[in-house]
Amino acid sequence: MGIAIYMLTFLLLLIGVYALVAKKNLVRIIMGIAILEYAVNLLLVLVGYRRDGTPPILPRGQTAAELAARAVDPLPQALVLTSIVIGLSVTALAVALAVRLYDKYGTFDMNDIRNLRG
């Protein structure tokens, strides 16, 4: 079942990429960004999971050594926290760009927003 979990995560990643590359609607592209972020964050969390693990937070009256024997890996969580922040930042910037593009062209459709040659 572990293999299926990983493979579905990679599939989710590909759905995000598909939305970014093949879709023409600005809003849908922003949603693709969100899905892509989810997939990457999910992969990092999965990589750090330990079966029946506890959160890496020290309960009162326990030593770190006791916690270390059964906590999940805290490092990927710290990385994901940074990655969530980066994802929010990218989304905010993309929304700002989409809003301005709508102001200029009156549409979210990339087919009508095409002045540049590839």
Binding site: A92, V95, A96, R100, D103, G106
Partner: peptide, 20 residues
Amino acid sequence: GLIGIFLALVLATRQPSSQE
């Protein structure tokens, strides 16, 4: 920072003008 950008976005979305 987020309050600032949110306010800026809200004010920018107040009246979308198709042409400037």
